[in-house]
Amino acid sequence: MTAPTPTAVSPGRAGWLLVLRDLRLGLRRPGEWLQPLVFFLVVTTLFPLATDPQMSRLRDMAPGALWVAALLSSLLALELLFREDGQDGSLEQLAVSGLPLSWLLLAKTCVHWLLTGLPLVLAAPIVATALGAPYAAIPGVLAALLLGSVTLSLIGAVGAGLTLGLRRGGVLLALLVLPLAVPVLIFGARATALAIALEPMAAPMYLLGAIAVLSATLAPLAAAAAVRISLE
């Protein structure tokens, strides 16, 4: 039998197939992926109820409410990222596929963001408006949340990998990921606050972008190491 088969698949195509598979799976079970979005809407609704529904007061609170709610709902979605693939043996297959595991996990994380992060970003204009943000602020709010939610998914993948298959995994996942998400929260909420105040928001956006680039570079490697350890 001759060594490596000539019909092997390139990592790029393998990643693309994984994206297609996870998208198809997600779309066949929309309920699961929509839950974080619903959670996001409910939590942001609770803020005015718990405080003061005056628009001027809400406007001050809007960035914080938006970002804490986004952080919590992306955390809620994280448990879905590797759980099923870990249980049914798919992750094992990926780990011994001869393809770079970090790359495959990055593909999975991208789909996860498309299914859980992007809906939050798209719902953000409605929520921001309801919390008193002017229409002119919407592009800025969208941009900040777009960059931030991608980064949260990337960082979260490491935590999801580490807690894969653990009892009490959910609470532990929150404890692991939330402290690491502090910089994203700070810069994201600040960028949103500047957007709502219709001021230039370049400084926090640059910092948010820097964290996003760093996470995209390192987080998949850490996630792959974490998943391999969890599969032992």
Binding site: L18, R21, R24, L25, D88, G89, E92, Q93, G98
Partner: peptide, 29 residues
């Protein structure tokens, strides 16, 4: 790249048909 591995977990996705499962899981490689 020369290893076919099968353990207790079948790595099949419940929401995909048999050909779909094969197309995606074996198609990665």
């Amino acid at each position: 790249s020369e290893l076919a591995w099968l353990s207790h977990g079948t790595a099949l996705k419940g929401d995909l048909s048999a050909p779909e499962n094969l197309r995606f899981s074996a198609g990665l490689r």
